[in-house]
Design a protein around this nucleic acid. Structure first.
Length: 592
RNA sequence: GGUCCCGUAGCUCAGCUGGAUAGAGCAACUGCCUUCUAAGCAGUAGGUCUUUGGUUCGAAUCCAAACGGGAUCACCA
């Protein structure tokens, strides 16, 4: 039983003893900083049923608690707020549990498995900042779910075919002159992206020419020669034309090599990768099933539809009249494939909120088809990363490239570290490792601290900070503590929790209180699919530790018990920070 | 036009299962390194929580409308 639930029980007892009233549930909130106490009970709600003033109710309950509760030391009442302080012995006992808990914060296996699909890149262009948000969210979510007891399967569905891929293939065919990543000294994904942009340039030129000849914008877009050629390439690909497939395979190999380099750099990986070229024909049997179950219906042109107006959605096409699939057909098939492959209890898709409608439709159809797993499908919808100039568009080249940004962050980390001059004894490989840790710490934290559901802004003019509410701030706090721990070890000071009579410093109580909140935060993060909860917690814990660090001397205290305790407390905070950072995919450096 | 999301300090964001004088960080200004890492700490300044109604003892938080921004409503993915 947690201290918080004991306190709630005691408050219930107090209310029953003093007012003969039985309450179902007591709601406690953390006491605001400017008041004394750690837990606050709000008594306004009781004024009506008790016909007493809020202050009087608070006083009565507070007095009862101090006299009868084993854990309450003191209280104060401000208007309807009863602020409660706990005995130091209680804080010490809480801390003792935390310090002795190997995997503090994590839950035992719950027998549930969950699939997290994320990243899902297109093979016609390199990753950009928006993909980074997706990757970091998916990766962090997987870690958070794992620590909450789920078995997690990380998957990636690669969009490796389709008209957009044919566009870069065509431009390469026409303008490439056999260029290779080696010859161009370009990562393969960047090479493909270059031709994707070139396609768009030429295509626009052709549209403009046609419009000048009197075509409408719409006609021109359909009739532009390169568009017709790209479509022809797609047909050839679908027919298995050798030369086309060879070109497709060659360019994709280049792109995968580029992606893998990026994934490795940012520390993201998958348990299973699905390729759309393998799955794009799936789903047609589900269409048959839907027709026979009369979930779907045919129109005169032979196209197949589903009526979702009862669900508040529209009629939706699920198969073209010529029998070819659309996006939703493939996704139906792929979801069924994932289920057959893994039989997970839950399925998550980390996909931008521009596809909210698509997923509503997908889940509604699965439900109509009687798929029990449809109830456990969730779209983890996240907001776009916008630039001050608006949305990022790969075609138009208005993107913040992932590789460039990471490289730039590493450079900034190196400059900053060298200015501070704290690691002059590092081997160069150690230094490089630290720059990487700091760069990714800053970048990942920047993207993960914001509520995933909200869109966010990135201003390339202002570089991502290394000070204040940032990843490096938290990493720095960890490194600081590690320095303390090393010093303690060198001086043979052992970490020790003192006996119940020890008088705590206020900064120590606050640290223990914050530590005690960790498990709750991790559970909330899993429940709400929000790594930002872990991010904010890690920042607050680090901040509270830094306050403690500035206020209290660890080694200079004349009381050896205090020294040992503060070493123990520091160690627990370091482990908690390290764990929280790990959940964000951020490494905690020993020194910086 | 229908549906959905969003609007909090100059900027980027917390807070939103209703509760105390609305919080951080950045930017600005003041202090603090002969003592455990100053990538830090302490402080000053900065807000009609878009607006207007409603519910309530109490609203940034819930409801409605208006205004502003975004997404989506493709036989693209």
């Amino acid at each position: 039983m947690t201290t918080e639930s004991i306190l709630k029980e005691d408050i219930k007892k107090a209310i029953f003893a003093e007012f003969q009233l039985t309450l179902e549930d007591i709601v406690l909130q953390p006491t605001k900083k400017e008041f004394e106490g750690f837990y606050t009970f709000v008594s306004f709600a009781l004024t009506k049923s008790l016909k007493k003033a809020p202050v009087q109710i608070g006083q009565t309950i507070g007095t009862y608690l101090v006299e009868n509760s084993d854990i309450v030391s003191d209280f104060n009442v401000v208007q309807g707020f009863l602020n409660i302080s706990l005995k130091d012995s209680v804080w010490l006992s809480i801390f003792n549990d935390i310090a002795n808990h190997e995997q503090f914060g994590s839950s035992p296996a719950n027998g549930q498995s969950v699939m997290v699909e994320f990243s899902s890149p297109n093979t016609n262009k390199p990753l950009h900042l928006g993909h980074l948000r997706n990757n970091f969210l998916g990766d962090s979510l997987a870690r958070i779910l794992k620590t909450n007891g789920y078995e997690v399967v990380k998957t990636c569905l690669v969009n490796d075919r389709g008209i957009h891929i044919c566009k870069s293939m065509l431009a390469y065919q026409e303008l490439g002159n056999g260029e290779t990543p080696q010859a161009a000294n370009l990562k393969g994904d960047h090479l493909a992206g270059k031709y994707y942009v070139l396609f768009d340039k030429e295509y626009k030129k052709q549209i403009k020419a046609l419009v000048e000849q009197g075509k409408t914008e719409e006609e021109a877009a359909k009739e532009a020669p390169w568009m017709l050629q790209a479509q022809k390439l797609l047909r050839l690909w679908e027919q298995g034309d050798q030369a086309t497939v060879d070109l497709w395979r060659k360019m994709n190999e280049w792109v995968y090599a580029g992606f893998n380099e990026t994934y490795q750099k940012i520390g993201v990986n998958f348990d299973k990768t699905y390729f759309e070229s393998d799955t794009y024909l799936l789903g047609k049997d589900l269409i048959e099933e839907g027709l026979s179950k009369q979930v779907f219906f045919k129109k005169a042109d032979n196209s197949v539809w589903v009526d979702l107006t009862a669900e508040g959605l529209d009629e939706k096409l699920v198969l073209r009249g010529d029998g070819t699939s659309v996006y939703i057909t493939q996704d139906l098939g792929t979801t069924e494939l994932k289920y057959n492959d893994y039989h997970n209890n839950r399925y998550l898709w980390v996909v931008g909120n521009e596809q909210d409608y698509h997923f509503k439709v997908l889940f509604a159809i699965l439900k109509k088809l009687g798929r029990s797993y449809s109830e456990e499908c969730h779209h983890i919808s996240y907001g776009m990363v916008d630039l001050p100039t608006g949305k990022m568009k790969s075609r138009e080249g208005t993107v913040v490239d992932a590789d460039d940004l990471v490289a730039q962050m590493i450079q900034t980390a190196a400059n900053r570290t060298q200015e501070l001059g704290k690691i002059e004894d590092f081997e160069s490989t150690e230094a490089v490792q630290l720059y990487n840790q700091l760069a990714l710490g800053a970048l990942k934290y920047f993207l993960l601290k914001v509520d995933p559901k909200k869109r966010m802004l990135f201003n390339p003019e202002e570089s991502i900070d290394f000070q204040g509410h940032t990843g490096p701030f938290i990493q720095y706090t960890f490194a600081r503590i590690r320095s303390i721990i090393r010093k303690a070890e060198a001086s043979s000071i052992t970490a020790q929790v003192p006996g119940p009579t020890y008088q705590l410093h206020q900064a120590e109580r606050e640290l223990i209180f914050f530590l005690s909140q960790y498990p709750m935060k991790i559970q909330a993060a899993a429940q709400e699919f929000a790594p930002s909860i872990v991010s904010l917690y890690a920042f607050e814990l680090a901040k509270v530790y830094n306050q403690f660090y500035a206020e209290v001397s660890i080694f200079a205290d004349p009381n050896p018990q205090a020294v040992q305790f503060r070493v123990a407390l520091s160690g627990a905070v370091a482990r908690c920070i390290e764990n929280a950072l790990m959940l964000l995919g951020i490494e905690a450096p020993e020194r910086m």
